[in-house]
Amino acid sequence: MAAGGTGGKTYSFKVVLLGEGCVGKTSLVLRYCENKFNDKHITTLQASFLTKKLNITGKRVNLAIWDTAGQERFHALGPIYYRDSNGAVLVYDITDEDSFQKVKNWVKELRKMLGNDICLCIVGNKIDLDKDRHVSVEDAESYAESVGAKHYHTSAKLNKGIEELFLDLCKRMMETAQAEERLKGNGASQSASSRRGVQIVDDEPQATPAGGCCSSG
């Protein structure tokens, strides 16, 4: 619905980061956007809203990454955050079984509320702590496949797998947006004409010719 295709060739996507408190959502996004980890010299004031500009196969993409509060007491506020988002990154800690359980809950909720409009990524973070792993790779990957999500392994500390994660996600979101555009029917008339109560008063033929005669005269 929040089709990013409005800018012709520029896509704007909204991606929400969901996951329990200490799974490393913030580290992940700081690593991606600022390439920093636990840095004492982080210049950004905040790590809750970050943007990234990408160029994928000649198309410009503006990515807006929304961090969410992971505490349990804020769980009920989820729908306010993920409304209108094109993608969701669901992060868990591979050393913490509980955090994977939370991800499953989020997936259920997102699919129920947004259907298949949203691209889901399930991310097992902290693979540098593989010796303490409590969530098995097979379990996680088979679960992701069963709900139509992609699974990734990342480490914000070692900067592993993060670029791939977001690049993949962007490509998938672009595909979804393009499919949506095709569905809507091609042409500029798409969104406007389908809505009711169009209010444009048009006593001169068209905007473009009017502009043309202005500049020539």
Binding site: L17, G21, K25, T26, L30, K40, I42, T44, L45, Q46, A47, S48, W66, D67, T68, A69, G70, Q71, F74, L77
Partner: peptide, 12 residues
Amino acid sequence: KKEAASADDFLP
């Protein structure tokens, strides 16, 4: 906190 604020800190 001497670090960049995350959403976990911001919302409360």
